[in-house]
């Protein structure tokens, strides 16, 4: 049985938006900490994060699948071939990108800003919150990049999700499947719909970003 397009689309959006949201929740604080902390080993962690951006999604999918496999260390959780398993894989895919862009965004702010905010009487959390406000535009770009990376990947979605109709099929795996069957027309429809979804989400974020940029230049 073939899933209706809207159902696959909704699943794609759910998986990638959830994964991007969770990755941003972890990646933005992590990137901020890496940008501001003066601790030994920071360079090593930064190198790891940057390497994470270059890891193919199919490799991420392989590692997540090995962990979640029924006989694997987290097999008891029953997450293999589930939407939740796919979300976990996509979090790992989006996380290095969001962390790395956040780090760069915070490092682009005036280096004296944290000390300046402290000298104005901010406590630690107020300093971090203000830094995020000041870097809001690139942080939004980080979230957009994370979402774009997650929704366009096919490797981990295939391996971890299994492309099960009615359960784990998403837009990218549906495209691959239809191309495999020689149904290029259907694949093109899926591709167009996927592009539209990416365009709408990124368009919304970009309009927020542009409004923020325009205000700062006024």
């Amino acid at each position: 049985m073939v899933d209706p397009v809207y159902e696959v689309l909704a699943r794609s959006a759910l998986v990638s938006l959830t994964a991007s949201l969770v990755a941003a929740t972890i990646g933005i604080p992590l990137g901020t900490w890496l940008a501001l902390a003066r601790i030994p080993g920071r360079g090593f962690v930064t190198a790891l994060v940057n390497t994470g951006m270059a890891v193919p999604t199919v490799v991420v999918g392989l590692f997540v699948a090995l962990l979640l496999w029924r006989s694997g260390p987290l097999g008891d959780l029953g997450l293999i071939y589930t939407v939740r398993g796919m979300v976990i894989a996509q979090i790992l895919i989006a996380l290095p990108l969001i962390t790395s862009i956040t780090m760069a965004a915070v490092q682009l702010l005036p280096p004296e800003l944290p000390g300046h905010l402290r000298s104005l009487g901010a406590n630690r959390w107020q300093v971090v919150a203000r830094i995020w406000v000041e870097a809001r535009l690139p942080l939004l770009a980080a979230a957009m990049a994370g979402f774009g990376h997650a929704i366009s990947e096919v490797g981990s979605a295939t391996i971890v999700g299994g492309n099960i109709h009615g359960h784990t099929q998403v837009m990218t795996t549906a495209i691959v499947e239809n191309v495999g069957r020689g149904e290029f027309g259907v694949a093109l429809v899926y591709g167009g719909v996927l592009l539209s979804l990416a365009f709408v989400v990124n368009g919304l974020l970009a309009s927020v970003q542009q409004r923020g940029g325009a205000w700062a230049r006024r």
Binding site: E112, H116, R118, L120, V133
Partner: peptide, 20 residues
């Protein structure tokens, strides 16, 4: 402490105003 630190004002050479 934070309360004592807030008795001190520091005006930097570069204004370092915030984007608001």
């Amino acid at each position: 402490g934070l309360a004592e630190r807030r008795r001190v004002g520091y005006v930097t050479q570069r204004p370092a105003l915030l984007g608001t």
